[in-house]
Amino acid sequence: MVDGPTLRVEVVTPDGQVYGDAVEMVVVPGVEGELGILKGHQPLVSLLAIGETRVRRADATVEYIATGIGYVQVLFDKVLVVVDHAELAGQIDAQRAEQARVRAEERLQVRDDPGARAEVDFFRAEQALKRAHNRLRVAARAR
């Protein structure tokens, strides 16, 4: 076999496969830090945190993907990323992400207001905020 991309990567979410390609390197946001995966990597299963997944293709171009929580499985040069949501950097709507960030922050601001407390799902707002930050960061990286 000649040199070249031999690492197969797939990113799977509840709304379908977001990315699938033969690549050179994959970097995923593991819960204990970033994990770089090259061809010939040991079989691995790791939890993933909300963050940025990077994929480097043979032609040295890089794809940035904003990924949510889930796991990564590496086996026989196949990298399977299974997460609750994922968006390619090029497809992120920065405006929408910004709106989501503002909305989540507004919701979190009423945290100390006992009247509004019951109405707001803080955990969800926090998650939304994290996701929005992540999307914005990844979108900015790709530019």
Partner: peptide
Amino acid sequence: VAYIYEPDASAIFERLLPAYLEIAIY
């Protein structure tokens, strides 16, 4: 296959369990 688990298998299992419920609800 001897996988490397990060963190250990049981911890990953526990963290993924809610997804089982989420999938059923979704």
